[in-house]
Structures are given as C-alpha cells and as structure tokens.
Amino acid sequence: KYSDMIVAAIQAEKNRAGSSRQSIQKYIKSHYKVGENADSQIKLSIKRLVTTGVLKQTKGVGASGSFRLA
C-alpha cells in the first residue's frame, strides 16, 4: 500500500523539516517494486494522508513541498 510506503520513507529519512515528494519517490522506487504509475499514485496518496491528518505539510502547497508525520 502506497500510504504505508510513504510513512516508511518519511520515518527512514528522519529529517526535522520533513521529506520532499521527490525524496519520498526516490526511497519508494529503491526499496519497493512499484509499477510505472508510481509517481502519480504517490502524489495522490500524499494528498490523502494530509487530508486525513496522518501527514503534516511543512512547506509548499498540494503534493509539492515537504511533509512529516503528524
């Protein structure tokens, strides 16, 4: 599940300011076997996790910027 992968990526990075979408994508692609549409799936999952309150956006708008666990 992409949401689990995103949470794992943010936990692994341990950046106080949060993790960027690009760094999350890079982590997921190197640690998991994902399909061609992974980028758009990650983007959608990040937006969903922010609206449900699992992630907090520290910089930027939408799916860009930095995110950390709430």
Rank of each mutant, 00 (worst) to 15 (best):
K56T: 13
E36G: 11
I10Q: 01
S64A: 10
G62E: 06
K33N: 12
V34K: 02
F67E: 03
G60R: 09
N15C: 13
V34C: 06
S66H: 13
Y32L: 03
R21P: 08
A70C: 09
V50R: 01
S20F: 03
Y27I: 02
A70L: 07
F67R: 02
Y27K: 00
T58L: 12
A70E: 04
G62N: 07
K56G: 03
R48P: 00
S20E: 03
E13L: 15
G53N: 03
I6L: 01
Q22G: 07
S23M: 07
G60K: 07
V34A: 04
H31M: 06
F67M: 03
T58D: 08
H31T: 05
K14C: 15
K59L: 08
G62D: 08
L49D: 01
T52S: 12
K1I: 10
Y32K: 01
L55P: 01
V54C: 07
R68Q: 13
N15W: 05
I28P: 01
K14W: 07
N15E: 05
Q25I: 15
V54K: 05
Y2M: 10
D4G: 06
L55V: 05
L55D: 01
A63H: 11
L49E: 01
S45R: 05
T52K: 11
K1L: 14
D4S: 09
K59N: 08
D39M: 08
H31I: 05
S45C: 15
S45G: 12
A63G: 14
Y32P: 02
E36Y: 09
K47M: 13
Y27N: 00
V7E: 01
Q41H: 09
T52D: 10
G18T: 03
I28S: 02
V34I: 05
K43W: 15
Q57M: 13
K47Q: 13
H31G: 01
S66A: 10
A63Q: 10
K14A: 14
E36Q: 12
K59S: 10
M5G: 01
S23P: 14
A17Y: 14
S23F: 12
K43V: 13
E36S: 12
V61W: 11
A38W: 06
H31R: 05
G18W: 06
A38H: 05
A63T: 11
I42T: 00
I6T: 01
I24V: 02
A8G: 03
Q25C: 15
G35A: 07
L49K: 00
S45E: 15
S30P: 00
S45Q: 13
I24F: 03
Y32A: 01
G53A: 03
A17Q: 12
G65K: 14
S45Y: 12
S64C: 14
S40G: 06
K29Y: 10
K33Y: 07
S20R: 03
G18Q: 03
A70Y: 10
T58M: 11
Y27C: 03
G35N: 06
S23K: 05
K14L: 06
V7F: 06
S40D: 12
K47N: 09
K47I: 13
I6K: 15
A63D: 11
V54Y: 05
I42A: 00
A8W: 06
R48Y: 14
E36T: 10
K1G: 07
S3P: 15
L69N: 05
R68V: 14
S20T: 14
V50N: 01
L69F: 05
